[in-house]
Write a protein that binds this DNA or RNA. Structure first.
Lengths: 356, 356
DNA sequence: GTTAGCACTTGAACGAGTCGACTGCTAATC
DNA sequence: GATTAGCAGTCGACTCGTTCAAGTGCTAAC
């Protein structure tokens, strides 16, 4: 990205002030203390005096990029300041040390278990960015059945297992007319499989409407399969894995003032998941800074997240949440890398086109 | 339970002091403020003067049941004081209002998904006791396979789905010699099922050692099935669902002093799960109070938990964690009820004896 | 064994005073 | 016109002393 690219939405700033703003944001991200003109002059080779910096900072404050806790205090970036920083420096790659190795060690491909992948990914991400991390399992917008299986439980109950196109499993209990031996259940399942393999919910409904073949058990299994698929499309069935709230609460903003309780409540409600609903296309990392969020509860925080999965296939979300003073470059790099990594794994579970 | 039953491990107390101690503990649980002799005299009909209460409280302090934040402050129960209270009042049934209805509304039997049950149970429990709640899915000490299924993915990869005796599903990717059509995969699965239905890990190993029938695919599937089962027995595969950290952090002990960060870190590490390892037999509710815990990190908290599931079958754990000043009677009642409720659900998934 | 009375202890709340860090402004300088 | 030195002014953080109310511990009387 070109150094001189300015945030299009923001009022123009001369080059020195742009550079200064970037330094202020990055210094504040690092130290968590309001940055003063003197410190800036001392720590960075700016070749101007503190007084000049003060003038520039007054200008930045005027334009809304920074604010001051009180009259005689240093500058603290405001949301537009962070936004400027993200647009300007967000594409830089700053993975934490040994991040790739850590990811590879933590995630076991052969498990074939998107839930386990998501859990591990959240753990690695949380410890890399020192904030809360969230990963969801995957889900397709359009569910297709691949195969079903009916397993005898006891008396008049059996377990219907549905393997979906993206290799995810779902199960329901079905109630039978009479106690039926496993052989017969398997027969019905096989017959069903020949008819419904690869079908979507809509196609299954058509089949059902056509009053298809088969007795009571066949019909029940078909009905329940349809119900599972439509639940799958309607409900948010993706499992969420959270990790690293402790990391986040160790940030200085929670030591005094900021309520840890509010942060904890975010875990239990669905604000985060709702943010994720508006998911970017794969490979794009999205950043929502403080007040930019539509979710009331998330206003005090920033969220960095990305979609992973197969294009037009099963997708999940991975991201991190923390105070607006978070290390955006590191967070974006880590999220980008993990999303790409998980995408590869998930795509390996997708059926290849010729078997579709 | 007889009112005069004293905690066997504790030094003897006359009846009035026992009653006083119970009142002190229950008052402190309710108000979270050190209880003074005057308040006790005013609020409860004790028929003695504050001075007498002071003498009794001095005795209770001497014996370690209560302590004082500072010289001129009221009494606060210490761990043995809570223990006394739990032994004396723990069996009383004090379910929160409409608790049964809330449980029934929240938990959907037909989903047949122990993970969904555990998630809902944790949510209901957390909001009932206003503390952190934890529920795990179930797991058998000895894993048995019920049925397997092999589903084509693409090229040389297939998905091995294992339905276990307790209706739980596990999956792994298996690598094939050559791209094999679904029909053939199903055939192998059927052949396998006739041999291995109901077998334990040990029995599967014997079968494998006998150099059983079948080609490469058959052997691979058998090997991976064995691996899944032994992982199941070796690893802690139970999924944990946590809920209500926000409730817990709203308790007054976290408003000032007590670190919310420490509490949050408990979520990420395995202290709680390790406590659960020492699981009581079903129907027994276990209470671990503060310093009684073997887990360093859990010392500042109390945990109330119970095992649920089928006797000698699949078991999980449900419990709640909070500051030592928690409502033990309510917590124990709620946990007891939920454990019984979940046990019923899980037992419905167990195979009936004749099909074993 | 119980109670009244009283001296004593202690934390919490409040306000005044001090200190240090930093800014904003003005006037001089490049 | 931009930059800089110098300086008065502002504000939070910290400390110290005071006051106040709550509650105990002890003693002597009942």
């Amino acid at each position: 990205m070109n150094e001189s690219t300015a945030n299009p939405a923001a009022p123009a700033l001369n080059t020195r002030r742009q550079a200064l703003l970037e330094i202020i944001v990055s210094d504040y991200i690092e130290t968590a203390a309001p940055v003063s003109s003197q410190q800036l002059a001392r720590r960075y080779e700016l070749r101007v005096s503190p007084a000049t910096i003060r003038n520039d900072m007054a200008e930045l404050e005027e334009m809304g990029y920074i604010s001051r806790p009180h009259t005689s205090a240093g500058g603290v970036p405001s949301d537009p300041g962070y936004r400027f920083y993200v647009e300007r420096a967000g594409q830089r790659n700053r993975l934490p040390r040994h991040f790739q190795e850590r990811v590879r060690d933590a995630i076991d491909f052969d498990e074939a278990d998107p839930a386990a992948w998501a859990r591990s990914a959240a753990r690695v991400l949380a410890s890399a960015v020192h904030n809360l991390a969230i990963a969801t399992t995957v889900k397709r917008a359009i569910a297709r059945v691949k195969q079903v299986q009916i397993v005898h439980l006891h008396d008049r109950e059996a377990l219907l297992v549905v393997v979906m196109q993206d290799a995810q499993l779902r199960q329901r209990i079905i109630h039978l007319n009479s106690d039926t031996p496993q052989d017969e259940l398997t027969q019905v399942a096989n017959r069903l499989n020949q008819l419904i393999g690869g079908l979507s919910t809509a196609e299954l409904r058509t089949l059902w409407d056509s009053g298809a073949v088969g007795g009571h058990l066949f019909t029940t299994a078909l009905t329940e399969t349809i119900r599972i698929l439509s639940d799958e499309e309607r409900k948010e069935t993706r499992e969420r894995y959270l990790n690293g709230l402790g990391h986040m609460l160790s940030q200085p903003e929670f030591q005094s003032g900021r309520s840890a309780q509010d942060a904890a409540e975010v875990l239990d409600d669905d604000s985060i998941t709702r943010i994720f609903d508006d998911s970017p296309r794969p490979a794009e990392v999205r950043v929502v800074i403080g007040q930019e969020s539509h979710e009331e509860h998330l206003r005090p925080y920033s969220v960095v997240y990305a979609t992973y999965g197969a294009p037009d296939g099963a997708t999940g979300v991975i991201g991190t949440m923390g105070p607006t003073r978070m290390d955006y470059t590191r967070s974006m790099s880590s999220v980008r890398y993990l999303a790409a990594f998980l995408s590869e794994l998930v795509q390996a579970l997708e059926p290849s086109p010729q078997w579709q």
